[in-house]
Design a protein around this nucleic acid. Structure first.
Lengths: 197, 197, 197, 197
DNA sequence: AATGAATGAGGATTCATTCAT
DNA sequence: GATGAATGAATCCTCATTCAT
């Protein structure tokens, strides 16, 4: 009778189920940041902490480390598909957005062709699916005369090549290298910008 | 508080000091193999085990994880310098050997431009020195008309690009991709072969 | 590369979050015991084991070895402050409690003036803060005529001296030596007893 | 027939058996230094290294860690005995030399009453023998009226007390504390100096 | 008699993952 | 649904001690 627990008295703020979605988003955002400055092997606890949630929540949303990484990449891919779907978009613009993501974080790159060494993060399965979606998005806009239009794999080889070139401490560094890479391939790309929504 | 190896059992023989060099070599070889199939973050203990030595030996020869990686790379670089020094060697041949190393292991690639995310293996310092040695070896053979002869960084950007393209489960896979990459760059490379000594 | 506790067996129950405080206390108690009979360099794992918790818990509560030691000492100091705060307490009584702690464990002593050799446990920073608290507690009760009342440092030098004298296998041994030490200093101390609460 | 091994060709300089004595001395000196700045738990290998000999030599001369420590202390004790044996030496002078050793290194102190915590370095047996020699040397010079002349243990308790007081980063610090300690005991000591030989 | 390499146990520390609350 | 404590395996690294040369 004393002490009627006034909403939020001793409870971790359970805002109902819309909080779930919010948390998921926060986790992905956090993961993106953590990946950017600590690499893909960063402790999961760091991601949860940065997202401001308990570790349990992370596990609720993502069964394992690969799922987190994939979710991050998923967003990137969706953005690329989105530009590709824009009315006036051409290959030049799409490549610009793709390149922006490549310069954003080393993680994106690793993800994009993480079939390599066995000890990897274990993304392969999802990764190749995502990789194919990127390819589809790009290929849809490839005009016949384009340098990468020809043989089957050239397109994704080129993407991988640019990824390989993208190194350096700052985003500026990486952007410069990316552009140099495309130039060496004789490919024109649009401004390296994110998709403003 | 102390260690006192409860050791009256068996002590696997101390082959004296000329074993030291042999062990070092064994460690590097082991590291190369381990890296190839478990990536650069493989436990050091695995390397020691594969080399058939105790962990202490590894630490005696290499102060830290980066030193091991560097030693592996060092050998590769030396081989490249060696071909470059051969009497009749031309850029085509040197690139062939370089490419062979690129297809050999994902590790070589990571090492070659490991300046990336902070959480990395921490090779940067050595790595850039080695990278420069590779560059020097290549540049010494670049004829004026070569597609990469022009602007300052194009050469190493191209190398990085090919590294990026080199993915896939088997060496054959990776070799095919490497060749495709060089072709896209308009660069001719020799047969992708190790330096037979 | 990862951990994956091969754990389908048994997981000793997670008592929820109010166990945390209990665990912390258990760790401090365990540390006190371990320190008493194995010295300050005892393995942390021994402390965790004696406290009946996993090693991780120890690290959760105390970032490093020094933090554990400090926590133990902290309690002692608090007790001394507590007697000092008692209504009728005089210097004789306070010194009695202090002396009790000195005879309790070699660790308390080491901690109290652990500025020594570089290889030490690394408590210095905290330690001097705690040392000052002890000094304040004592000085508050020093009557003008007391042998240690005069010059600035005499008080803590005397405490250190008694600490130095406190050696011997059993508590009785140590108590006898402590009392001899105070006698040589011409200082009267109360019964050497813990603070009964 | 070719290649007559000219003395010292391929041999670590085996100067005969007088080298043995030289090595032993070097080890003790090295140990003293190492102890002084890394504490008694410093790795034995560090001592061997500083002495400029292989680790095997250390083991040849000293069966275990305690033996090294004891040998160091032994020298100190010998010096004290030596002053005590000087024709005109009085207690004041002997205490001066004793105090010098106390201020020299924390190690000396630890050694002097290392009966404490079980986890210690294991010197106890030797230590108490040495401690008795120190006591004998001092007591031989104690005049009847001296403050420490009376009851049996007061003398060594006092020595331990001063040891306890001797803390601080520099030798100057420690000397000041040592003198303050003796003053509190009402004991006069001579100049705090080593035995010039 | 010395050297210094090798062994391998022991201790420190980190993190994925579970689960009581 | 969320929290965050606990677990404990895995990995890193150090060092006492032995021993072929």
């Amino acid at each position: 009778m004393t002490h009627q627990p006034t909403q939020d008295e001793r409870r971790p703020a359970n805002d109902g189920r819309k909080a779930a979605a919010r948390n998921r988003a926060a986790l992905i955002a956090a993961a993106r940041e953590i990946y950017a400055d600590s690499g893909l092997n960063a402790p999961l606890s760091a991601i949860a902490r940065r997202a401001g949630v308990g570790q349990g929540v992370l596990y609720r949303h993502f069964p394992d480390r690969a799922a987190v990484a994939t979710a991050v990449l998923e967003e990137n891919v969706r953005q690329i598909e989105q530009v590709a779907a824009e009315p006036g978009a051409g290959i030049v613009r799409v490549l610009g957005v793709l390149t922006w993501h490549q310069t954003q974080s080393a993680a994106f790159i690793s993800l994009l062709h993480a079939e390599g060494a066995g000890g990897g993060t274990g993304v392969p399965a999802y990764a190749s699916a995502l990789s194919e979606r990127v390819e589809r998005a790009l290929r849809a806009h490839l005009p016949a005369g384009h340098p990468l239009a020809g043989e089957r794999d050239d397109l994704m080889v080129a993407v991988a090549m640019v990824s390989g070139a993208v190194t350096g401490p700052t985003r500026e560094h990486r952007e410069r290298r990316a552009l140099a890479a495309w130039r060496l391939l004789g490919v024109e790309v649009g401004p390296v910008l994110p998709l403003e929504d």
